[in-house]
Design a protein around this nucleic acid. Sequence first.
DNA 1: GATGAATGAGTATTCATTCAT
DNA 2: GATGAATGAATACTCATTCAT
Lengths: 219, 219, 219, 219
Amino acid sequence: MPGERALRADAERNRRRLLDAAAALLRERGLDVGVAEIAERAGVGRGTLFRNFPTKQDLVAAIVIERMQEATDYTRTLLDAPDAGEALFGFLEELVGRQQLDRCLFDAVGETFLANEEIRAAHAEIVAGVDGLLTRAQEAGAVRADIGAMDVLLLLKGVFEAASAFASSEPAIVTRQLDLIRAAISPHAADRPLRGRTPTLDDIERTLPHDERPVAEVG
Amino acid sequence: MPGERALRADAERNRRRLLDAAAALLRERGLDVGVAEIAERAGVGRGTLFRNFPTKQDLVAAIVIERMQEATDYTRTLLDAPDAGEALFGFLEELVGRQQLDRCLFDAVGETFLANEEIRAAHAEIVAGVDGLLTRAQEAGAVRADIGAMDVLLLLKGVFEAASAFASSEPAIVTRQLDLIRAAISPHAADRPLRGRTPTLDDIERTLPHDERPVAEVG
Amino acid sequence: MPGERALRADAERNRRRLLDAAAALLRERGLDVGVAEIAERAGVGRGTLFRNFPTKQDLVAAIVIERMQEATDYTRTLLDAPDAGEALFGFLEELVGRQQLDRCLFDAVGETFLANEEIRAAHAEIVAGVDGLLTRAQEAGAVRADIGAMDVLLLLKGVFEAASAFASSEPAIVTRQLDLIRAAISPHAADRPLRGRTPTLDDIERTLPHDERPVAEVG
Amino acid sequence: MPGERALRADAERNRRRLLDAAAALLRERGLDVGVAEIAERAGVGRGTLFRNFPTKQDLVAAIVIERMQEATDYTRTLLDAPDAGEALFGFLEELVGRQQLDRCLFDAVGETFLANEEIRAAHAEIVAGVDGLLTRAQEAGAVRADIGAMDVLLLLKGVFEAASAFASSEPAIVTRQLDLIRAAISPHAADRPLRGRTPTLDDIERTLPHDERPVAEVG
DNA sequence: GATGAATGAGTATTCATTCAT
DNA sequence: GATGAATGAATACTCATTCAT
């Protein structure tokens, strides 16, 4: 079926271009970039954008999900690493190295996007992945025992947002902050107990405004 | 001239109401609240808003600056505290307790606002204030010696942004994250050296997109 | 309060201009005229249109209601006319003479607009008004006894729609059709019984698609 | 060449499917249904629709013409009916019974479609057909003598538009209105003279906006 | 000084039509 | 011939800002 394959290839290429153009523009200028500019940068018409992503939110969500899945995939490749501590820290470094955690993505998560079922699922997966790395690192004595995956992810989110608020292209600031996070979760740091308990995804969803809460299903 | 003084008082009251109404709405709903609603909540007309703050950005900037100055003032009251370590940590806690670091304010800083001369000045002052607290804490052996005020502020900004992305009203998550920051900057944590050096305000400005750099004067 | 009065006058003038411009354009070109053109013809900005009428539908509805009320008002002036038969026929003629029953208005009624509470109320009033004229004409023996106000209004609506589909400015066709309606409802015509019964407003609402039915109240 | 014939058959089947799908959707939802949905309901691609009907208007026009021709054909079968009066009234009833006079079709006629040469021709034919029935009925004394075919058609158009504005599926309203039309054109009703004269097709075309007038050829 | 009506550039989204496959 | 992906003009509506009163 070369006809069908060819068509699909073209369509897939446009979808890819849109995702890339949108990711780049969102990184540079935040969630307020217009769809017109995204389509132009992708080299496609406005209608093509909406054929692929019925709303702007769907486009942003697709990028968020893609990034999250890449991160989740990466946690899997590290589960068999010999040094469990380095595996965890390597994961954090890698996210920096890939510059994958764009400003807008974290803008997006927590705003209206946790209402998106796919994003919540991807979120749960990334938490599970980090939890795997973290548990092994804790068992190896490389990380303090009194924290959970969400603690680490929130610290990481903070570092990225703080740094990327200025520029996502400045890695020097981020690596230094990562070293501080490493210190925060090192076993030596556990002599002082932490208040509260590790938040769960449910805790976070509970803090959202009511009309952004996930709903069972809308007919 | 009591008439003039009455007018001044009225004008001052309007300015105050606008700042309070805007701060409340920005906290609740983010930077996208409209000026119409701000003016309405303040009980003044739209024209009055623009008489006091020539642009919406100026209004937001005024709030940011006010909050920054309050933080700076607070560092001053702590400079004479007997326990230098507790003074620093108390400062961080206090910011949480006051819920003064609104979601939108940190959204705002780093976006286009560092181009604002007053904000840069306020920023410099808060850095100086934290530097004072930090230096004393370091001299007292309560905090590791290899970090600077900007390191602490970036960590803090991260914590607030991460947490406030979900809800500014959930202190449990923030206090726990603060404890992790405390661990990160404790003297015990310094056995592993940090990469890079403490960023300066100049470093941060250098990372901004060109058209957001501070300029002498914008026509 | 000359200040307030003056402002109101301006605003009222714009509202009037918008209604007139919209009525004219809708008559000429149907419901598909754009708001941009309406605003331009009215000599106001697009925002002003939406300040006065939150949606395009509200603008159209306002025109429909205005026309309906004018018709209702006219029925009232005829209730005391000496010749009850001529009063009813005069009412029908007058509507033609005023060219008040524009194409778009009848396009509008029956589409989504019966869901509008105000329009339904205006509709009920006009039916009541015609019922008053009709009953008196029947009592005077000028009109057959076996019909109701909705019968007459449906005939009238048909005449106007049929004629205005071509041109609202051609009165010759309409007056001739009106004479035929007059024949249809004359007492001599009653020797042949009519099938069914006079429809009610409820009958008509019952025939609307479900999502256009009036709803109690949406919070 | 059976291959070619097979293709022809396929093409004809697609054309038929498109006409049926479009007629059904237009009846249900009016002229605003999109071509995408029509093609989908017909089970063909969008391109096929435009291969058969160069524009959406052409598709609608084809349906209008088809319906008109069916009506014309029906007038022919009634020309030999024994009772000339019942033949005419039966024709009107039949149109109702077939529900062939869809809402959108009469929306369409009179808008831009009279510019279509084929529609004008079909229009002329239907007028001629009704004229045949009417003349015979008049000669038989079943219908008043002072009216023409266009008078009847305009009354009929009115009834259908008025009724179908609400629901094309409610026959009770329509049959009652048909009885009133019957009364309007009965010989007893002729004691009062009608103003004007029976309009002609030319009269109607003359009332159209200039840019909707029939033209020799549009580039 | 204060008001809120007016403005119009900007937004996401739709849809008839074209064209590469 | 058929397909459906691509197109982009057009649409209703929003909102920071200006200005007449």
